[in-house]
Structure formats: structure tokens, C-alpha cells
Design a protein around this nucleic acid. Structure first.
Lengths: 217, 217
DNA sequence: ACCGATAATTTGGAATACCAAATTGTGAAC
DNA sequence: GTTCACAATTTGGTATTCCAAATTATCGGT
């Protein structure tokens, strides 16, 4: 029953498969904050050895989803208020940078299709399809990051957004997000990097206020 | 000759010991960009098994110091011009955030000792002790990050600075850096977060210009 | 019952062994 | 001499085994 033949079953190393499984379980609430992640148990459950599980956990640790408590094992991190504040501060700076860079690309002649995602979001909201709206909003941010063409920025910002993902669903005021994304897309499209950055920062700030309001009140 | 008893010899897991060794060899130029890092060789050299070496490499990969080439193994990353530009863009946003947060802490009554590090730098430069000056400058940045009290920011920014560390030594105009650090410390001390941010951003921009000039001209 | 010592269990850290994909080397056929 | 097929090597991925620190359970003495 050597299952090592499953190695390149789907082209990805097992650590990536495993980390993705664990990550989604954390984000969808299956693994509630405080849950202890035991390597052996996870390995048994996913029917792999501890090696890829270990590497997966290291990755999640680096992403900030779990923490390693000295001798007490690995635990799913709690999202404290100050942690949320920290993340939003970071996100504001990074998303501001993304918007600035995107606007600069536009000024250099590149063409973004950010408004396409705004349109999709609008259509979905109109149809009351909130799953689709949520997906379109996430795609909008991904597109903004990709369009900014800074791989390091992407590497930092994407996990951050992922971490807040599950909150968004609950906090989102789709009408307002649609308006703000629309404004941001337009600001980027003008190529005015200063303004694009300011608009992005405002957007994150408004998100932040609503999120903190929702989570800790 | 089971050396596993060396486990807690110094309180750190071997992966940390190993990653630190590899990191410094990359940063000090022993492992030149393009060098292939072979797990078995490193394990043999450090006299540990491949397990901790693997985990160390994963970490370095995440920090952006090495890259995993599909089936060709792990290679020390090259610092291309566009990569340096990317990193400086990121750094500008993040260090701007750090300065802003630091100023806010000051406005809330906290007392920074940033000027202490500026003073040390000044003393070292006056004494023509450039190693000490360099150390003091690095310490200044570390202190700024620490004082901003955002663990996530620190986790992102510190590796970034490390990656540019070895360049700094060569590019640095100590007089100018001293003046800029002094200005930044003073801006933070006033508690004016807007201005502190702007000063920090300018500081990074001036660094950036000199670095690109030095590396690619 | 309570306390303390010791044994069992839990859990992550590390070492070793094995496997598969890819590259490289080699030699025979022409 | 060139080329193509096949074997050896390289290298990372995974599994398995062993180890040590810490916690928890157990049991005898009082």
C-alpha cells in the first residue's frame, strides 16, 4: 500500500495539496481558532506521511494562520482585535502600493480590465447572487495585484487577503464595495498614481472600520 | 554517532540553525546567485540529516532568497534590476507604514529611542568605523520596525531588508544616510504621522536611486 | 482521600531508507 | 563521426523509524 505513486498525480507536491486542505479548513471554520493540529492525526486523515504534513504546517505558520507553541504543538491562531488592526494597516499600505503601481502601468500604456470585474460584481449583486458577487470582488483584488506586476507584493498581500477572506463574506456591504471598487478602477484607469493610491487606502479604511465594528462590538 | 542529542544544544531547532547558516552564506556572497543548493551536500556539510535542511530551504524560498526550479533543484536567486525595483517599491510602502505607526505611538505618549541609534551612527561615522556605522544603521531600521509594534509588518519587512543588506554596505553614503535617519527620527518624534511617513518614503526613494545607480550602470 | 514518585503517553524533531522524474553519460549501430 | 537507445546518476519527494522533552496517568504510601 505504498501510495507514493500518488506523488505527481495532479502535478503538485503533497505538501501543497495538504497545506491547501488545511488552509481551507481553517478559513471555512472547520478548524476553529485554538484547535490543535497534530501532525500524526493529519497525516493519518489525509493518508500521507508526516513529512508533507510537517512542511505544510511550516508554510501555514509562515502565513500566520497557525502558531507553534513551544512544546505544546501547533495551534490555529486566534484573530485578536489588535491582530486584525495590524493586518488592515499592512493591507492599506500594500493595496495602496498595488493601486499606485497599477496606475503607473496604465500611464505607461498598459490596459487593465479591472472594470470588467467591477461589472461582473455589479451584475451578480443585481441578480442577488452573493456567492458570485463575492467571487467577483475577490477576483477584482487579485487582478489589481496581478496588474501591478510586483511578484513580491503579490507574495505578501495574497496570504493576507486570504486570511481576511472568510470575514469579508460576513461583513460585506455589496453595494458599497461595488461603488468603491468602481471608483478605484476608474482612478487606476486615469493613470493618476497618487489618486489611485489614495482611493485604495480609503477603500481599505472603510473595510477596516466595518470589519472591526462587526467583529468586536 | 547519533548526533540527535545536539537537538536542543542551543535551544533552537536545527532548521533554524541551518537556515541561518545558509542565509548568511548567501548574504555574504559565499553562495553566489545561481549557485545550486543540494540538500544532500548541505546536510553532509552541516552534519545533519536532510530533514532540517529541507525545512530550512523551504523557509529561504519563502523569504525569496532561493528559488525552486521545477526539476532542476534549488538555486540562489539572482537580483535582477526589476526585482530590486520591486523590493524597493515594497520597502517604500512598508517603511512608510512603519514610520506612520511609530509616529502614532509617539502621539499616544510612547517614547522612542530612535535618536540613540542615530547618535551611535554619527559617532561611528566620525570615527570612520564603517562596520559600526553600518550596524547602527541596520539597528535604526530594526528599532523603527519594532517600535511600530506590528508583528505582521515586521515579519514581512525584516527579510526584505536582509535581502538588501549586503548591497547597502557597498552603496551607502554614510553622511547622507545619517542626515536622513536623523530627519526621520525627528519626524517620528513630533508624532506627525503624515510627515513621518512621507520622510520615510523619501528616504527609501533616495536609497533606491543610489542602489540602482550603483548596481546597474 | 491526598500526595508524590514513577511509568505511560503524547508530540514534535531528526535520521534514515526508498522512490520517481529528469538529466547526463556511454556505447553500439550505422 | 554522429546518433539514438539505454543505463547510471542526480535530485527532490515521501515514507518509516527512532528519539527526547513534556505532559498526563497510575499507583503505592501515608
Amino acid at each position: 500500500m505504498n501510495s507514493s505513486s500518488a506523488l505527481y498525480q495532479n502535478g503538485f507536491p503533497l505538501r501543497d495539496v495538504v497545506s491547501e486542505k488545511i488552509r481551507s479548513r481553517i478559513l471555512d471554520g472547520t478548524y476553529v481558532p485554538g484547535t490543535r493540529l497534530i501532525e500524526r492525526d493529519l497525516a493519518a486523515e489525509f493518508e500521507v506521511s508526516r513529512s508533507p504534513v510537517r512542511e505544510a504546517i511550516r508554510l501555514l505558520n509562515h502565513e500566520g494562520l497557525v502558531e507553534s507553541l513551544a512544546t505544546r504543538g501547533i495551534v490555529v491562531k486566534k484573530l485578536t482585535r489588535s491582530e486584525v488592526v495590524e493586518i488592515f494597516d499592512l493591507r492599506e499600505a500594500l493595496e495602496g502600493l498595488a493601486a499606485r503601481l497599477a496606475a503607473e502601468r496604465v500611464a505607461d500604456g498598459a490596459v487593465s480590465n479591472l472594470d470588467e470585474f467591477v461589472r461582473r460584481s455589479h451584475v451578480a449583486v443585481s441578480a442577488l447572487d452573493f456567492d458570485a458577487a463575492h467571487a467577483a470582488n475577490a477576483a477584482f483584488h487579485d487582478e489589481l495585484i496581478a496588474f501591478s506586476e510586483n511578484g513580491n507584493l503579490q507574495a505578501v498581500l495574497t496570504p493576507l487577503l486570504g486570511r481576511l477572506h472568510w470575514i469579508f463574506r460576513q461583513v460585506l456591504d455589496f453595494q458599497q464595495v461595488y461603488r468603491e471598487h468602481d471608483g478605484l478602477a476608474k482612478a487606476v484607469a486615469t493613470g493618476d498614481s497618487r489618486r489611485a493610491r489614495r482611493v485604495a487606502e480609503k477603500h481599505v479604511q472603510s473595510y477596516r472600520a466595518r470589519t472591526l465594528d462587526y467583529l468586536f462590538s
